[in-house]
Simulated scan of single mutants.
Amino acid sequence: MIALDLIGIGTGNPEHVTLAAIRAMAGADLILLPRKGSDKSDLADLRRQICETHLPDLSRVVEFDLPVRDASGAYLDGVNDWHDAIAQTWKAQIDARLPQGGRVALLVWGDPSLYDSTLRIAARLGITPRVVPGVTSLSVLTAAHAIPLNDLGAPVIITTGRRLRDEGWPAGADAVAVMLDQGGAFTHIAPDGVTIWWGAYLGMAQEALISGPLDAVAQEIIDTRAALRARHGWIMDIYLLRR
């Protein structure tokens, strides 16, 4: 029988890994680390660094290559097909390495419940996992800027860059947290009276932060983001908008 742990590991800083996460990692018979291609090799390196920091024995840590998503068709269809392929890749690794069963762990950036599909992929295999929560990029963003997420009694909408670009400012929201932006979705909203708090590589050594009135700092964020992506080959960023 296979048991599965989905372990939130924060945003890349080994000090953000919780005691519960370390305990779950130590109790796993197999820890699978996905590789997402050479342009994101730093991500695999960070997962390895987290394992090296918190585990005395790395013999149970195995890396594998993730399938590549086909971006040529409809977005949701492509993502669902990709998740099917990932589920089968997990199964192949587990069957090959734990034929008699055991406990498998996957290390998930941030928290497995917030804009991450690991839970949906696990469901494709008919496995109900144990989830170990992690520090999220959203909480690290607000901590880095030393701001509260919301004003007193005010709502916050968490959405994606794609939806902000296509649909504009969400109705009824005083503040909008934007994740999974390919870059510059905030240029598709009216900037008047809007403040932005932006962060990239949160919790990592290369962390970058910019904040201010949107109309004053939007271009600086776009330029900084492009330069950082060119330097590192990948970027993970998030921002909070408030008006």
Rank of each mutant, 00 (worst) to 15 (best):
G78I: 12
T224M: 06
G126F: 10
A230P: 00
R97H: 04
L241Q: 10
G37T: 11
P112F: 10
H232F: 12
T128Q: 10
A24T: 05
Q93L: 05
P133G: 14
M179Q: 03
A205D: 10
V131K: 08
E220F: 03
L76S: 15
Q219G: 04
D237C: 14
R103E: 00
Y115E: 04
D95E: 15
A216K: 14
S211Q: 14
A208G: 00
R130H: 09
I157L: 04
S38H: 08
T53P: 00
R23V: 02
I9G: 04
T118E: 01
L152T: 13
L4C: 06
I9W: 04
T136Y: 02
A230C: 02
H83R: 13
R48I: 07
V217R: 03
L209C: 08
M204I: 11
G184V: 14
A230H: 07
H83W: 12
W169T: 11
A205W: 00
M236Y: 12
P129L: 08
F64Y: 15
I157E: 11
L209Q: 05
E63W: 01
V104P: 01
L138Y: 07
G172M: 02
S59C: 00
R69A: 14
T195G: 01
E220D: 15
L119K: 03
W234A: 12
A44S: 11
A44E: 14
L114R: 03
T118H: 02
D65Q: 11
G134C: 04
T118N: 05
L19I: 15
D42Q: 03
G12K: 06
I189G: 12
D215Y: 03
K91W: 07
T187A: 09
R242A: 10
D223N: 03
F186M: 07
L19H: 08
D223M: 00
L55Y: 11
L43I: 15
E63C: 08
V79C: 07
A200P: 02
V194H: 05
T18W: 02
Q219H: 08
A74Y: 04
R243A: 14
T53F: 08
Y75G: 01
Q206F: 11
G37M: 08
S113A: 14
G183P: 03
K91H: 10
I127E: 01
G168S: 07
Y115C: 04
I9T: 13
M25G: 04
L106W: 04
D166N: 13
G12R: 06
A205L: 03
